[in-house]
Design a protein around this nucleic acid. Sequence first.
RNA 1: GGAGAGGUGGCCGAGUAUGGCUUAAGGCGUACGCCUGCUAAGCGUAUGAGAUUCACGUCUCCGAGGGUUCAAAUCCCUCCCUCUCCGCCA
Length: 415
Amino acid sequence: MLDRGLLRNEPDKVREASLNKGEPCPIDRWLLLDEERRNLLGSTESLRRRRNELSQEVSSLKKSGAPADSQIAESKKVGDSIGQIDKELSAIDREMAKVELRFTNIPDPDVPVGKDESANKIIRTSGVKPSFDFEPKPHWEILGNLFDQNASGDIAGANFILLRGWAARLQRKLINWMMNFHSEAGMEEIWTPFLANRESMTTSGQIPKLEYDMYHIEKDDLFLIPTGEVPLTNIYRNTTLNEGDLPVKLFGYTPCFRREAGSYGKDTRGLNRVHQFEKVEMVRFEHPDNSDKALEEMVIHVEKMLSLLELPCRISILATGDLSFAAAKCYDFEVWSAGQEKWLEVSSISNFRDFQSRRGMIRYKPAGGGKPLFVHTLNGSGLALPRIIAALIENNQTEDGKVRLPSVLSAKTGT
RNA sequence: GGAGAGGUGGCCGAGUAUGGCUUAAGGCGUACGCCUGCUAAGCGUAUGAGAUUCACGUCUCCGAGGGUUCAAAUCCCUCCCUCUCCGCCA
């Protein structure tokens, strides 16, 4: 959600942001509603004031036994007018709230402008792509039966993962390693619900835009979380923190559920694109002055993880057209996958500034006193499992179909 | 799923039977001041949020939403959440 002052005073900035991100921009409608609303508010407030005065008069007249008929009659008339105006006002309020959820966040000034991912800028590439004296295989061939698509298909359907034996254990080991890594960096470990309600989804920004990309349990109006960002961010919904509490750094493991409707076809082989995947997610609540620095810190942190996993990686800053609805700035991490010979996205790290906190009323009380202010929220994957597994397996394969894992995983050779 | 008890400002908590004298008492906490060898105590003052306005101010908010009334924290309806017990179940 954007600040009403911004919408009111700098509509061109909002238009430009929407244009660059390729999002609709109902600013003209909003401006109209806003003006109408303020007019009606003025009328209803002075009427209410009058009614309050009359109530006082009625009260004291009755106590002294005097008649209050004329006051009561006027108050009734005033009340009717209030009722009428309030009806209009609440219709406007409802529409404004709906319209406001449709404004995308404003990209940071240093975000490259461009209509899609082709305008993303690679910041740096690290690690060395492995070379082979044989033809490297894609992970689904190396894994063979350990990646049992017949079983997952029977259990749930296409594009679900079922791992067996060594592969299943590798996933568990990786989750463990990632969580220990964050823990040692001083973040608080969180275990969350994997379903979330409509308010939570609205706060983190999945609703309204992505509502139909999520699994929805109609009976209870609950959604399967598409990312751990949702429960972690909503921990402090409708909460006022103290300035001294900031920054709050959290992480948690969650499965992530995505319908991926309409995405069948390219890039869906193997572990690349699935309906349920595992992820360890980091979320930070930051003082507004510190969120830029925090974003860079998170980038370094994730880069460290990938280098320990010995995975060649490429970091890009996303162009406006590729930036998600709620984000102001985002870095993507891709790892090299030798068998498929392509880069796979394994982490995005974003600064949302006050976009989410405004939706969810996540604030902090300034130490020097004064009104509560909105925190900045950031989040980043650390990391998404299936593609990490794919890259690990492909990059470390041997000619006889085995896998030699990097030392941090201290694993025996597989398959 | 059934029965019961609750939800009031940062926290605790009064007010709900009998609607108006509560534009929510009191306490704790917090901040500042006084006092004081120091600290504590004591005394004093201040201290919720949102909307709107250039401002003074005004309006709104007692879980959420509706209703009754001249007037609702208080009466009525619907829903949500928490706690206790029962049932079912990993």
